[in-house]
Design a binder for these strands. Structure first.
Lengths: 149, 149
DNA sequence: CTTGACCTTGGAGTCGACTCCAAGGTCTAG
DNA sequence: CTAGACCTTGGAGTCGACTCCAAGGTCAAG
């Protein structure tokens, strides 16, 4: 009672596309599956699990290259914890940095947005408006100045 | 006493590359500058300001296509506030969504990482380790299960 | 006058993760 | 038996923002 899937059946089962699965096969993420007499790919549930693994890793923001590493150790039966821990730690640091960056950005944008809305648009001269305070000579233009650092 | 710059002088003045400036010219972000008798580009400070504007917008995560829109209105002398406000509002919503997503992700990853480190690696069978709990039959494997949703 | 660092151009290559194509083969419902 | 929905392949195209290339021209120092 082992289920088999054609490429598009498996794709829709995991919410992906046939092209994507064939692409994963090409780049070595999915092994070549057995074929039907007619030459169709016949996937089973292990392929489905593997895809779930890939998608889980992708949700974490790992690249397909990272995933390939992880799958390689997963396949050998060696403990995948150490590499996984490293990938995770690295990615966690990236995520932290990104959150920090975005929060600073958000604050800046909110201030800019508020300023623009509050002053309700005093049109500057052509070419006057600028995003970098350093290049804005006239203090009048501060209203239209966004971007800093 | 108007300063002029060659392409690489201007590039290094704003922390960019000659190729990038020529690229911006090609896609219509920088106007064609006057040329020296020898055919060299001769930029002045307005080009420098324009680049500062572009870089400011880029730091906010706007695409070069967004920047082109903003520059177009800036150049006409029409008030750029309305389009700028729209771009900003849209981008602000994107940033908020991204922050939320990353914070959820961060929490998930931290939990996974802690679990892996705490249990100190009980090697699973080959192919057993997985990222998606739905495909992990054996509760023993929970230690090695990452990714959820 | 030569060396070498710059400049010019159009065009192609890079990255990641797909996505689409054409030309042909297979399978299923009616 | 045929229509049409699937499958196969290798290869090319897409996105954004550069980045690099070759073949040739210009310019300042020594």
């Amino acid at each position: 009672m082992s289920t088999t899937y054609t490429v598009s059946q498996l794709a829709s089962a995991v919410g992906s596309s046939p092209d994507t699965l064939r692409y994963y096969e090409r780049i070595g993420l999915l092994p070549e599956p057995p074929r039907t007499p007619g030459g169709y790919r016949a996937y089973d549930d292990t392929a489905r699990d593997r895809l779930a693994f890939i998608q889980g890793a992708q949700r974490l923001g790992l690249t397909l290259a990272d995933v390939r590493d992880l799958l390689a150790v997963r396949d050998t039966g060696e403990c995948p914890c150490e590499p996984a821990e490293q990938h995770l730690a690295r990615r966690l640091a990236e995520v932290d940095a990104e959150i920090t960056r975005l929060q600073a950005l958000r604050e800046q944008m909110r201030a800019m947005h508020d300023a623009i809305v509050a002053r309700n648009c005093l049109p500057p001269e052509p070419g006057t408006w600028c995003l970098d305070p350093a290049s804005c000579g006239d203090p009048r233009d501060e209203v239209h100045t966004i971007g800093r650092r």
